[in-house]
């Protein structure tokens, strides 16, 4: 694989991005950090049937062929098990057959990055405060796939890792973490917020602070933007070793 050579030219190149970790299916083509086109469909359980046709339509809409692509980025989860493995499989297969670099991006980070982008664009939230973005995707049995990302003016960082957590105790943990901070934060929940509004409003009560809540969809564009930001050689995945991040096992091991 001519990774080094490809990367030297990456700045002019086309990236195919995809995510199937939620009930949505989303694909996009980026040229550098510009989105040429994005498609999102409500796939529910049909990711496996729809992903390839969506990619074909996407590429034909922007008049590109598979061989014009220079790298691939995929949401690696965590999220729906039956969903996430579809994009991971398609992404690794394409990267391997086309001999182009493959980037794995946290789907939860993608969702957080997207809402931060939209909040800035639409001037939502409290100006000047660091934004703690908490993506939540329903993992059933009262659990969520979640994390905590802190967004500041000049970038963002993961504060609490991607994982599967009981929503009830997770809001408690967030509260304690918030208490330990020296500066105030604004808190933004994004994803399946409607289904967990009871827990979120409990957090509002104990913390005495209003939460921003957005029922946002995943955008492959954000997966691509994150991949673009991390496009140094060390972040490239070896296709054969690229696997979904389910996170469930880690939790099970913790309970042993």
């Amino acid at each position: 694989m001519k990774i080094g050579q490809t990367l030297n030219h990456l700045s002019n190149n086309f990236m195919l991005c995809m995510d199937t970790s939620t009930s949505d299916l989303t694909v996009a083509v980026l040229q550098n950090d510009q989105c040429l086109k994005e498609i999102r469909v409500k796939a529910e359980r049909s990711h496996s049937i729809q992903l390839i046709p969506c990619i074909q339509k996407l590429l034909s809409d922007v008049d590109l062929k598979m061989r014009d692509l220079n790298c691939i980025a995929a949401g690696q989860g965590p999220g729906s098990y039956t969903g996430v493995r579809i994009a991971v499989t398609v992404a690794k297969t394409l990267a391997w057959t086309l001999h182009i670099p493959l980037f794995g991006v946290s789907s939860l980070e993608g969702l957080s990055y997207g809402i931060n982008r939209e909040m800035k664009l639409n001037e939502l939230g409290s100006n000047g405060l660091d934004n703690w973005i908490i993506p939540i995707l329903n993992a059933r049995r009262g659990q969520v796939y979640t994390a905590l990302y802190e967004f500041k003016e000049n970038g963002h960082e993961n504060r609490l890792p991607d994982g599967i957590r009981l929503m009830e105790t997770w809001v408690q943990q967030i509260h304690e973490y918030l208490e330990s901070q020296s500066s105030s934060k604004q808190i933004t929940f994004v994803g399946d917020v409607e289904q967990f509004k009871a827990e979120i409003s409990r957090l509002e009560q104990v913390s005495g602070q209003k939460m921003n809540c957005y029922e946002k969809h995943m955008n492959a564009y954000d997966i691509g933007l994150l991949a673009f930001k991390q496009r140094d050689r060390s972040k490239i995945k070896e296709p054969h070793h690229f696997i979904p991040n389910y996170t469930q096992l880690a939790e099970a091991e913790k309970n042993l």
């Binding site: 359980r45 729906s80 098990y81 039956t82 993992a139 059933r140 049995r141 389910y246 469930q248 096992l249 099970a252």
Partner: peptide, 14 residues
Amino acid sequence: EEADELGLDEYFYG
């Protein structure tokens, strides 16, 4: 472990 990775809950609660 394998069953856990399959994400059966999406079927059970589907």
